[in-house]
Every structure is written in C-alpha cells, then in structure tokens.
Design a protein around this nucleic acid. Sequence first.
RNA 1: CGGAACGUGGCGCAGCCUGGUAGCGCACUACAAUGGGGUUGUAGGGGUCGGAGGUUCGAAUCCUCUCGUUCCGACCA
Length: 568
Amino acid sequence: MRTTAFHLVTRKETPQDAEIISHQLMIRTGMIRKLGAGLYTWAPLGLRVLQKIENIIREEMNAAGGLEMLMPAVQPKELWKESGRIEDFGGQLLAIHDRAERDYFFGPTHEEVMTDFVRNEINSYKQLPINFYQVQTKFRDEIRPRFGVMRSREFIMKDAYSFHLTPESLEATYQSMKQAYTNIINRIGLDFRCVLADSGAIGGSGSQEFHVIADSGEDAIMYSDTGEYAANLEKCEAVSLLNERKAPTEDLQKVSTPGQKTIDELCDFLKVCNKQTIKTLLFEGVEKPVALVVRGDHSLNEVKAVNLAAVASPLRMLDEEEIKGITGCEAGSIGVRGLDATIIVDRTVANMNDFICGANENDFHFSGVNWQRDANFDSIEDLRDAMAGDPSPDGEGSLQVARGIEVGHIFQLGNKYSTAMNAVVLNEQGKSQALEMGCYGMGVTRMVAAAIEQNHDDKGIIWPANIAPFSVAILPMNYLKSERVKHAADELYENLKAKGIEVILDDRKVRPGFMMSDFELLGIPHQVIIGDRSLDENQVEYRNRTDMEPTKVSRDTIESMLMDSIKV
RNA sequence: CGGAACGUGGCGCAGCCUGGUAGCGCACUACAAUGGGGUUGUAGGGGUCGGAGGUUCGAAUCCUCUCGUUCCGACCA
C-alpha cells in the first residue's frame, strides 16, 4: 500500500472527549471516528486491525471444532418473551418495530435465536455435541457509553453456543473453549488472566472471564500470588479473617457517641480500630427487610448481596424513612442488637467478639457486643469484597489485585434456555431430554482497544506483530526529488509485496520529521528509512517500533532480515 | 435514569458577563523556499455560532423551550 492510495488522516491534537489512551490513539491515528454516543465508524486503518483479530479468532475457533454461521441482528420480541429475559436486560435492549408495528430487538446477544435454530435443527443425540459461532454486530443501549470502542453501544462480538446431551460433554467443550480463548489472546500478544466470574444476566452455573491486564480496566481482578486462584472481585470468595470466635471478655456497654455517623468518625471518637466495629446495612428483602453485616473495614459486595435468596432484586438500600420505621434511628446508628430484620452476617463478622455496633438509637453505640449473649444472626454468608492481602480461598498464597479489561466470558448455561424454550433431543433410550448448553463471548472491537491500552508509549501505538495494520513501513527521505531514493524505496516495496509482506510506503510530499512522527503514532512494527545519506554507503536504516534503535543495514540484506524478523 | 457541564468552519478553542464587523491555532488548497525529526513565507477556500421561539432598531451574546454531546454514580463482550 502506498500512503497516497490509502486513507491516512492523523491528528496531532488529542480529542477533548477521549479519556483513556486507547481512545485517544484510535482517534489520533484515524482508526475510528465517532458518529454518535457509543457509535463508531471503522476507517480502513482500524478495520485492518479488527479483521486481523477476527481472523485469529476464526482460526482458533475452527481448530477447536466450532462451526461458523451468521444469525440476524434483528430478533423478534416473541423469542425474548419465551426466554423471559426482557426484564433481565431492561433498558439495554434496543426496541424497534417494522411497518406493521411488529416488535423486534436489535440483538444484544443471541442465546434466544440460537436456541430457536437448534430446537428446529437438532433432534437426535447423534447430532451432539455441536458448537456454532458467529462474528457479528451487537447493540446494547448502555446507560453510559464511554472510552470509545471499549464500551460502545454498537460493537462486534464473537459469540459461540454449544449443545450437549450431558453436563460432562458440556464441561469438555467448555474446557476446549477456555483453551481456544487462551490461544487467541496469546496469539494476539496480550497479557491476560482467566478469572472466575459472576454470570449476571446471561445466567447459568459456572463462568469465567478473560481479562486483559491494564490500569484503565473497569474491573478489579483478584489473584493468588503463588497459586492458581483468580477471580473477578465481584465473584472472588472472601474467607473469614478470624479462625474462630473467642469468648467474650467485655461486658455489653451502651456508649454515648453524639453525632458520630460513619465508621471513621466513630473510630476516631472512641479511639478504636475499625476492625473492632461492624457495619449494618439495611436492604429491601423478599419478605422482610434484610440486614447485611460486614466488618467496619470491609465493603459490601453488591453482586454477592443481590445473589442472596432473601434479598430483593434489584438491590435496593432502604431509605431514611424506612430505616427509621424499623430501628427508630438514623442510618449512622443501626446495630444488630434487637433489630427486627433478617440478619445475615459476613463470615468474618460471625467470628468477632467484643465488637462495637450501633444501638438503634441516635447518638449511641454498644461496645463489648458478643454473639449469642447480646445479639443473634440468622445466617452466615460471604458478603464482603475480598481485599489485597487476604488469604487466597484455595489456601495457596495470598490475594493480589489488578485491573482488567474483560474481553471474553465463557458460561456453562446448563438447560436454562433449552428448558424455557423447549429445545430437546431424543436420547439413546428414545426419551425426550433438554439440551445442555454453553455460550462463549469475545469482544472483538474491545480487543483492539485493549491491545492499545497494553501496547503504547508517549509517541503512539506499538502494535503486537500479529495484529499490526501493516508489518513494514518504508519511509523514504525526499522521495519526490531524489531518483535514487525513489528507486530504492520502490524496489524494496515491490519485493516485499511480492513476498506477501504487508508493507506501506509513504510516498506523500511531507517532510521527514512529519513522516516519522506519523509512523511512530501508527505503531508499525518494522520501519525502514531510505535516504541519500545512507544510500551513499549502499545502506538503509532499520528501526523497530519497540526500541526505536536505528541500525544501518546493507541494501542487500534488508529484505532477508525483514523476512526473518517477521517470520511469515 | 439521577447529579454536573458543554454545544462557535473537519479538529482544538477565544468571543458571551457588559447585545452592534465572527476570530485564533491545527488541518485543507495554490505557489515558493527548504529537504534525516511535526520547517518557513505568501495567497486562498470553508462557519445562517446545535435547533425553535421570544425580548430588541439590532442577538453567537439576554430569556424560554428543545435536541445533542461529555463527565460523576447503578449494567456488561
């Protein structure tokens, strides 16, 4: 490709609405342009990268036995009524209708369409297991799109769906998908972790997420420093930090704490450590209000909370009026003694003794509170966010924290959809049986942004070799005036092209500094600078984008050197 | 959806408070010089100031409504 025949429009200035580096660089390089909130045009440069990622995904999916297909983006509302997921997805569904006022959704995901396809196509256990996938445009009406294509409303996802007669068969395919995802991200060249995850609106029993490690990541992931354990913070098991409950040593005492509302204020006032206190949080329950109790220095994990049977979904904290009605006090003085609510305590809280809590009376707390003697709870659950330094739940090492960008999520759905939508096969005994189902999503557009988050410097993008839009950039100095330079550049360009190398030759009438800055921004891995100065010695200059160290290379060997470093 | 802010050539912004000629930088076009790190000069093209209504002799500027966008909180590949 010659730049004059390509669409290359770079910008020196950072767009005002781009917060994170990948978004900034994608706009500055001209890979994408914004059309509206969460809507982006992929220019030719960006599409080259996107398609490379798609191709790697296709190759690995095919190698793992996946069968590519393509479903409509527009889905009849009736299918969603069958699965009962309209409520789960809520406002994220883009509702549309046709001229006859029939209702449709623009697909945010395709479990329904796929299950419909399969219940018509698959009738016998002999057709199983099978794994279909597609690479397709989705639309989710995110409440707050941001970070460019990282959280856009329209995006491209690879989604796969597998079907099985038995949970064992599902497990086997699930593991092969996990391996395929590992291969994909390794080939793209990114640092990632596979972590345990909450399955959210998609549902099912078990799921894992693939996170590309980056400081700008929206998720916190916890991992053992010495063991295998890794989980999304929202899922990460938090163990009890106290092995056993010690016997009471203090008497129950009501202490005056005028105006002390937050845990921090209370601890300052009483000169105690926040590890001696508990937080009692009141939520709407299914039958009666629920009090969720965590230690003063811990934070409630909202995903764990909403997953509790006694807690109403969606999660809602009681307001001031409701709190007053139950406790007679304000939010800062709630405590567990004599509280009329279902009391669920965190594992650590269950083992505390001599602790401090609100007295359900404004400006008073209790100290020296002990379970059984002074108060009781209904059950013990894992309620809190795990913290760095906690023992790993599998007993191996302690937990560390990192930020991650979720690029993939794999689920064992079991028969949730097949039962709801009556997708059955006849088994060997001729009996009708609901299908076991798995689904496997990967954010293709997001992967591009994630790759940039992990591979850039102050000058621009540093593309990993396998997804770079071009492998080699030829930068001729004074191409339009020096016949010698033009000849050498054209010759190298044609030779590399003939060998199947993706090469871009900058034949624009721009000055050298401009040209070099442009290609640093673009992040092309291998750059060859050709000018009269080095041609005098029958040499060209080579640099790679990673270290930018210039190396003089003889004209005779530059081609083979490039071929070696690219390893086609 | 709640809270905040912003809409002025393709991009980044000034002008608005105190109403009267629409301006700057980048980008773009042409010419010239320059030619190994975003070079310089000269000359150009491009904006009904988000939209509608109002106040006024006169509105980018003041008022009302509306649309859009972005940022902060609950969702997810």
